[in-house]
Design a protein around this nucleic acid. Sequence first.
DNA 1: AATAAAGATGACACGGACATCATCTTGCTC
DNA 2: GAGCAAGATGATGTCCGTGTCATCTTTATT
Lengths: 169, 169
Amino acid sequence: MLCLSQTTGYAIKALGCLNESPGQCGLIAEIAGRTRLPRPYLAKIVNSLARKGLVAAKRGHKGGISLARRPVDISLLQIVEAVEGKEWLGPCLLALDDCTSDNTCPTHDFWLDIGGRIRRKLAETTLAEIIGPRWQGAAQARRVSSAKGSTAGRKATHGPTAVRPDRRP
Amino acid sequence: MLCLSQTTGYAIKALGCLNESPGQCGLIAEIAGRTRLPRPYLAKIVNSLARKGLVAAKRGHKGGISLARRPVDISLLQIVEAVEGKEWLGPCLLALDDCTSDNTCPTHDFWLDIGGRIRRKLAETTLAEIIGPRWQGAAQARRVSSAKGSTAGRKATHGPTAVRPDRRP
DNA sequence: AATAAAGATGACACGGACATCATCTTGCTC
DNA sequence: GAGCAAGATGATGTCCGTGTCATCTTTATT
């Protein structure tokens, strides 16, 4: 499957959810509940993001996590590299192991170009754009026109794990 | 890692190797030896390719496999879809599970465009181009000019598995 | 200082892609 | 048609990305 790892999607969702209360601290448990992500795994992802300086984590009583910068100042590229590492772009589209710099396959230059496009797109797209028309953007959309698409109410009606906000005994 | 599966690379190498004796039957064991691919896994891949009509397999004594069509008539897209299935292109670059057709992420249109480019490139690149300047292409290059780049002799001098033609006790 | 609430962290479990093996089936050669 | 050389196939093993757990560390509150 040609796409970024699922972890990237998790990180973006978590950061988007985190932005809903700007400046304020969110709790990992709470975010996990709202985004329906596995809590312990989310903690790991948040850890990666914190080490890269994308989120600020405050330990101890009354602690929590918050965005370290404004969403406009966080690019998708930074998120991707935080969770997938610097080498997230494969060296050869066709996964040919002997497609090296001095012996390239016919799609090499093409893939280089594509990789550049993707990297550029990720670099210039910010977290603000992601969360704008999607999760919290409903409020903004409502402000513009009272009822336009009317596809607001239904979400998360497709997965096997229904509405359980918490799954501990 | 954003790239196609390793199996795709295996398939391409095997088909390229197979083309070296056009019209003639190659043995899976022999091809596995030459390409340094695991023999049983290669057999599986060849099976997928045979079911999609890309290679012709002849069983029994004096059997073997051969290309079902000329390399010019085999596109990379056909190879990819044979081994990875029709759904090799992820629906969302960022792996956002709720990035559906009516609720798209900011990179959706971009990814659609990129996907189209990749699909088109794979469709218009044929096996002939892959094997041309690479594996068997050395002969062609020599025919044009006796000694041009002079980088002919060195190959496979970069990996950890050196020259072992076979790895059985 | 004791406590409780929060994230950090390393070990472990699971699942699917990748790889291997043993065995079955097929079809040539004689 | 007997024997054998070859691919086909299903069961099994391995590894890494993903997900879970228990425990440790930190810090505000009292």
